[in-house]
Design a protein around this nucleic acid. Structure first.
Lengths: 122, 122
DNA sequence: CTCTCAGTTGAATAACCGTTCAACTGTATT
DNA sequence: AATACAGTTGAACGGTTATTCAACTGAGAG
């Protein structure tokens, strides 16, 4: 009987109290990679500048200058955030001469924002 | 005529290109405080440990030890995150002897998580 | 009372991240 | 060709934050 640490998970500093619960919940948990990607996705909405950009684009397509003026921030700061939003496939852009117009590119955004608002507005 | 900077917003480094768009979008934008609170709310979901805890509690009420074992982390790390989740009114707890059981305390969570999953799973 | 164990807490460390700044690209105008 | 302007980019700075560590609380068991 060499079963040491039978009840412990590697980096965990305690024994399992409800072994059956942990086993069942563990079975139905999504893969760690999915959980990681999910957190990365929500992280996008976890910045007020990005949320405000999304809310603005929710009403109308906009260029970088207009967004910067609307939010009272520099073009650079807005451009950096738009890059993140574009990499996450939440936003798309088109060029017209010198001006680059950004618009939303995902149909889940509205529902997610609405659910978030529903929570903070009690 | 002292109207300098008429077309510029305080901390913005460019002039407004589409004045009408900026004005209209500006009218319909939620207050900055609401946007800030919204970002703070989504920040909660922007950490894989917290998302995994939420997903676990989605299946069953659980104590700190079990969550720590399930996720392969220390009780301390889990306890810190549970405190954040509780302060955000996403989680509640009850005590039974030495054991503290945590469970979900918000009906919007499921919908938000589902929308997030719908996005990352294409 | 004492010991054990579940859980909490605060300080400290390290990693992460948003903004700023300066330099740059590209397009239109003259 | 030269200028002006919209937008991008990379490095650097400062603030935020998740985990670790150690000390602590509190409840049950012997």
């Amino acid at each position: 009987m060499e079963k040491i640490n039978d009840n412990l998970t590697p980096a965990c500093d305690c024994s399992v109290i409800h072994e059956d619960v942990v086993r069942e919940v563990g079975k139905s948990m999504p893969d760690d990679e999915v959980m990681f990607n999910l957190a990365e996705f929500f992280k996008i909405f976890g910045d007020s500048t990005r949320v405000r950009i999304i809310c603005a684009l929710f009403r109308s397509e906009m260029c970088v200058c207009d967004i910067a003026a609307l939010l009272g921030m520099t073009k650079s700061a807005i451009s950096h955030q738009l890059r993140i939003l574009k990499q996450s496939k939440l936003v798309k852009n088109r060029r017209d001469g010198k001006v680059v117009y950004y618009s939303l590119d995902d149909e889940h955004i509205a529902k997610i924002i609405d659910q978030g608002l529903a929570h903070i507005l009690e």
